[in-house]
Write a protein that binds this DNA or RNA. Structure first.
Lengths: 161, 161
DNA sequence: CCAGTTACGTTGGCCGGTCCAACATTGGTT
DNA sequence: AACCAATGTTGGACCGGCCAACGTAACTGG
């Protein structure tokens, strides 16, 4: 009763880049489902986490402190404002800036999300022992750090014109 | 000379699901760039690899043997046909089926892609030792296998109606 | 003081990847 | 014959990531 051909080619299964992408599927599914229980998306959490860590910050600061593009920041902040989790106020000392501040409700929500996401991580790494989980995090961190800034940042300023 | 705030919130940096997604960025960038040198995309390689491993197969077989949806298979096969890397012929014993066969040129191309991708994997895992690379592949494989079939397959057949 | 340059927020859009619904054709079942 | 299942195909939705352009505002050098 073979379920023939249900698994990917061996060439792919041995390829780290492929494994990473395959692991990202359940990861994103679990995280998305977890956050959906609180009516949130991934970037909402990123934003709340950044605010909790950085304190009040401009949208440009938040864009730099997360992987969220400035273009997408507008809508993201709007959505958090609508739910009363952050406040957007104009910076009086620099009228270009919008200072975004997390509210007490935002902090409460953040703690809820922490709990939900912790659960999701547990399910994601279910087959691994505590020691193995540490190893995985360590190895991935090395890879991520090694490639940091190698493709995320703004395009090299073209000097033409 | 701190480059202040250039790194993501600690909450995220400690989260396996986030690390996996961040690692997927350079992974996809390197692989995409590598394949671009041969005028190919990722699913082209998946397809050629599956064909090389499965032998001649119908598009439905290929869809099941890869992560490529049947809807997207049509265009993918078309593109490979245009480049003479595969052939699409109607199965005489089942006139619904298109049998896709890899050509000698396809096999040659596949070997080229293997080489390009091997290089990309090396760059991706540059900071890791040989031992660490094995560990990473092993850990990711455990995670991927554990979640196999947990969200990819066709939607559960709704029994309503 | 003024001209040029830089930063910020915002709008709009493109692209790639994933997925689903519907359909006509064909084959299998009973 | 009547029904059900599988195949290939078209069309489109959705999401995440990214970029271009623009108006406003601040800064800098002459």
């Amino acid at each position: 009763m073979e379920i023939a051909g249900r698994s990917a080619p061996a060439r792919l299964r041995a390829m780290p880049s492929w494994l990473i992408n395959q692991a990202a599927l359940p990861a994103n599914r679990l995280v998305t489902e977890g956050l959906a229980g609180a009516g949130m998306r991934r970037y909402h959490f990123s934003l709340l986490a950044a605010l909790d860590e950085m304190g009040p910050a401009s949208q440009a600061d938040l864009s730099r402190g997360t992987t969220i593009d400035g273009s997408d920041m507008v809508a993201a902040v709007n959505e958090l404002v609508e739910q009363g989790l952050v406040e957007r106020t104009q910076d009086p000392t620099d009228r270009r800036r919008n200072v975004v501040t997390i509210t007490p409700a935002g902090r409460r929500q953040l703690r809820t999300l922490d709990r939900l996401l912790g659960k999701a991580q547990g399910e994601l790494l279910a087959p691994l022992s505590g020691e193995e989980r540490k190893q995985l995090v360590d190895l991935l961190t090395q890879v991520v750090d090694h490639h940091a800034g190698t493709g995320a940042g703004p395009r090299a300023r073209s000097s033409s014109r």
